[in-house]
Design a protein around this nucleic acid. Structure first.
Length: 493
DNA sequence: TGGTATT
């Protein structure tokens, strides 16, 4: 019990939910101006069991604990005051944690100071509010999507105020100040937040929004980190990290990622200080670590032939006649996981075009037998020629919709209902480097709208694909493959 | 004929 109290008094209470609020071990013993010493419980002043730990922001960096103490003592007896310092450099981070002995003092300080005055040299008002560690913040914070871009904070408040006390309401805006059509709403309690979800999620469609209102709990830090990773990976043209979460591809991807991280870190260390590389390396390491902890990754059960690979759900993988052959691109190098290539390919979730007829023993193949037959004998000759050109390493699996340069983007219509992004990409890989593939899906039904986009990195590939695939018969339909209309194209009236 | 956005 003493240990626990000493720990709390040292500012080491769990505050893991917000890294920027993190106190580090090096901040121990910096409680200048406070008369109790850490590690000696007998000298620790009493504090309310429901005392609130406050986060103080926008503090000038030349003020330390003893300078700040008078400012806050006005509202009550201070139990603990700790300026946050950088773990390594010891540099003042411009913020602090403050706990009063009495809960009431914290509330008074918050209402008197929060955003109420600006400390000398700062250009934003002081922040005085419960630290994120107090509430495990995320479980009462909502992400609101599908707002009308015209809606203001007040509009959103009005929408949400019936369900509880709103502590924060923020519309997300781009650099230009325009709403991104989404917001964060933070309630005082989880229950209020849950009530708002129950009442509002999907309840209405804002004018101009493409689907009904989204109300859900905001991403946790971990989820946010993963999201950033994905965005960055997409921007850098790397493999799609989603595969880590959804497929047995994960083990390989993770290995690759760690390798990448190591390489990038060593590059950064080797004197070539590219900030982007260093940043990326750090992110990758973090991401790899997250997956190691199983926080985001699906359990990676090795798949063996005949079973359905993880991540393959209802819309698995149709097969069309093989343009590639057994030795073509597999999606995984043979060494991956020490698994034989064929195994790895299957587990990958991206089926190469089978060189042989599906066997009845293979449920995946069975499931797509129908699609397979559609294709008929008429697949393009181009497939055969190009197949040899495939490189060994795994391809990029574009997830972000990226348009290629002018003349590189195709619009494809009359796709089989079963085709998803991956299958669309597979179909066009033989013609070049597919940087993006996207099948449009009806949000309400999750059904493909049977059209999509494929982007190559060069116009010649796009032209080759049009030549080969436009009019390509699948079942009763023929694919329509043409250049995508440029955004600014004049539409017929 | 590229949508749904996470401080």
């Amino acid at each position: 019990m003493y240990i626990k109290m000493a720990t709390l008094a040292n500012g080491q209470a769990d505050n893991s939910s917000l890294s920027s609020n993190h106190t580090s071990p090096s901040t121990n013993g910096h409680m200048n101006g406070l008369n109790h010493s850490p590690g000696n419980p007998s000298t620790i002043p009493m504090k309310d069991h429901d005392a609130i730990k406050l986060f103080i922001g926008q503090i000038p960096r030349n003020l330390d604990e003893k300078d700040l103490k008078p400012l806050f003592e006005e509202f009550g007896k201070i139990y603990e005051l700790t300026v946050l310092k950088d773990r390594f450099t010891g540099m003042h981070k411009g913020c602090a944690f403050l706990t009063y002995c009495e809960r009431e003092s914290a509330l008074k300080a918050q209402s008197a100071l929060h955003e109420q005055k600006t400390l000398p040299g700062m250009n934003r008002p002081i922040q005085v509010k419960p630290a994120d560690s107090e509430s495990r913040g995320e479980d009462r914070k909502l992400f609101v999507g599908m707002l009308n871009k015209q809606q203001s904070e007040d509009d959103v408040r009005r929408l949400f105020e019936a369900f509880g006390n709103i502590e924060e309401c923020t519309i997300l805006r781009g650099p230009d100040g325009n709403s991104k059509g989404c917001a964060f709403v933070k309630y005082s309690s989880h229950a209020e937040a849950q009530a708002a979800i129950n009442a509002l999620h999907g309840s209405q469609t804002m004018p101009g929004a493409s689907s009904s209102l989204v109300v859900k709990f905001a991403d946790t830090d971990k989820e946010r980190t993963m999201r950033r990773m994905q965005q960055m990976a997409g921007q850098m043209g790397m493999f799609n990290p989603m595969a880590i979460q959804f497929g047995a591809y994960g083990a390989y991807a993770q290995a690759l990622m760690q390798q990448q991280a190591a390489i990038m870190a060593s590059v950064a260390q080797g004197g070539y200080l590219n900030p982007m590389a260093a940043f990326a390396a750090a992110q990758m390491q973090q991401m790899a670590a997250l997956n190691m902890n199983g926080l985001a990754a699906t359990p990676m059960t090795p798949t063996s032939g005949g079973s359905t690979p993880p991540g393959i759900t209802a819309s698995a993988v149709p097969s069309i006649p093989s343009p590639i052959g057994v030795n073509g691109f597999t999606g995984l190098p043979p060494q991956a996981n020490g698994q034989p290539a064929a195994e790895a390919v299957f587990a990958n979730g991206i089926h190469p075009y089978p060189a042989q007829s599906p066997t009845a023993a293979d449920p995946l193949q069975q499931a797509y037998a129908g699609v397979q037959q559609y294709a008929g004998p008429a697949y393009p000759a181009a497939y055969g020629q190009i197949s040899q050109a495939f490189p060994q390493p795994p391809p990029m699996i574009p997830q972000q919709q990226r348009e290629g340069p002018e003349g590189c983007n195709l619009f494809i219509y009359h796709l089989p209902q079963e085709f998803g992004d991956a299958e669309l990409m597979q179909m066009f890989l033989p013609f070049g480097n597919v940087i993006s593939s996207k099948v449009f899906v009806d949000r309400a039904t999750n059904q493909s709208k049977c059209f999509g986009f494929v982007s190559f990195d060069n116009p010649a590939s796009a032209q080759a694909a049009i030549q080969a695939m436009n009019g390509f018969q699948i079942g009763m339909k023929r694919l329509k493959v043409q250049l995508k209309r440029p955004k600014d194209a004049n539409r017929p009236y």
